Computed example of a mutant assay.
Amino acid sequence: MTEFEEATTMADRAESNSTSPLYVEIQRDIEAKIMTGEWGPGTRIPSELELLQTYGCSRMTVNKALSSLAAAGMITRKRRAGSYVAPPRLDEPLMQIQDIRTEVLATDRAYRFEITERSLRKVVDGIDARHVGVPVGTRLQLFEVMHYADNLPFTMETRQINIDAVPEMEHMDFKNESPGSWLLNNVPFSEGEHSIRAISADPILARRLQVIENAACISIARRTWRMDKLITFVRLVYPGDRHRFVVRFSPGSSLS
């Protein structure tokens, strides 16, 4: 029995004994070969045609599995050249603010963003004011933005911007640059804060991020200030298997 015939048998058995979609099983089979080192960086992944013949499934199923692997940074997909095991992915330094567009492009994937919601609101009570970190009465510009890598959701962004601190944001259209990228490139900040926690994808989040329900996700809440005035409060939610953060420190340094 060949390697891929074995994979087919595994997939058939998994499909009959598991509620996981077949594309997830294909993804896990390929992940296992990469993680064990059986397929090292630069190894060519079998073509979509080979995979659909191996697993007895549709091209759409294979494409979804490969797209998930590409979004996780485990493989790179190039038109007409096929898919290959990617070099080790870059860690994101936790003590810095990374531009999401730059981060996606650095992994040789196509980037785009979509603003799914935009509104203006005023903070009207003390609890809300303490949660965001602004005085009561502050006007906030709200954005919900989905960032994509090769047309697969990379991170979901919910951002609130203090209009008193950045008044020009209220009338910008953001057709060619996301609000976060524009802030990073144009508005200096003097202090920042990250708060990180693990969450499970509820049905709505799973649908939006195109992951299975209850999949592990990373939620990052970030605030930045200029002097003592809040600039922005943003929450980014990443599928847990598509991201990793690292903090580098030295003996005697303190982390808070």
Rank of each mutant, 00 (worst) to 15 (best):
N63Q: 14
R197Y: 03
L152Y: 13
S20H: 10
A129S: 14
D164E: 15
D128N: 08
I199T: 12
C57W: 05
G133A: 05
S68Y: 01
E170V: 14
S67M: 08
V24T: 08
D125L: 08
I127P: 00
R44M: 13
G192C: 04
T102Q: 10
Q160G: 01
T9Y: 09
A106L: 08
V136T: 13
F174D: 00
C217A: 12
L152N: 07
P179A: 03
I220W: 01
V123I: 15
T232N: 09
V187W: 08
M35T: 02
Y55C: 06
D228Y: 03
V234W: 06
F113P: 03
P239L: 07
E168V: 15
I163P: 03
T155Q: 09
E170A: 15
S253C: 00
G180P: 01
A65W: 05
A149M: 04
T54Q: 03
Y84T: 11
S219G: 02
A201C: 11
M156D: 05
T102L: 01
P87S: 12
F249D: 01
E213G: 00
I45F: 05
Q160V: 00
L66T: 05
E177I: 12
S20K: 13
S253M: 11
T19C: 00
L90F: 04
D164G: 13
V166N: 01
N162R: 05
A32L: 09
G126A: 08
R208C: 02
I212M: 09
G73L: 04
V24M: 09
N214R: 11
A32P: 00
M95N: 14
Y55T: 04
R80T: 15
N185Y: 09
Q210S: 13
T36Y: 09
E5N: 10
R248K: 13
S47V: 02
R139H: 14
G137E: 09
D228V: 05
A165N: 04
T155C: 15
V247K: 10
L52S: 02
L94A: 11
I212V: 15
L22S: 06
D108I: 04
D108M: 09
T224V: 12
D125G: 10
S58G: 08
F143G: 02
L205Q: 03
I45W: 07
M74P: 00
G56Q: 12
H147I: 00
A14F: 11
H243T: 11
M95G: 06
H194S: 03
F189C: 01
D91E: 07
V134E: 05
D91H: 09
I127T: 15
A11Q: 08
F245G: 10
V85E: 05
I199F: 06
Y111S: 04
C57I: 05
M74R: 15
A149F: 09
P251F: 07
D108G: 03
M227R: 13
D228R: 10
A11I: 13
R109Q: 06
L236H: 12
I163Y: 06
T61G: 07
V104F: 00
G37W: 10
A216K: 09
R13P: 00
P135N: 02
E38N: 10
D228S: 12
R109K: 11
E3S: 04
D173H: 11
E144W: 01
M10G: 08
N186M: 06
G137L: 12
N63F: 02
Q53H: 07
T224P: 01
M10Q: 09
T76P: 00
R13Y: 14
E117R: 14
W182Y: 15
S195V: 13
F154T: 02
R197N: 13
E50H: 05
R226H: 10
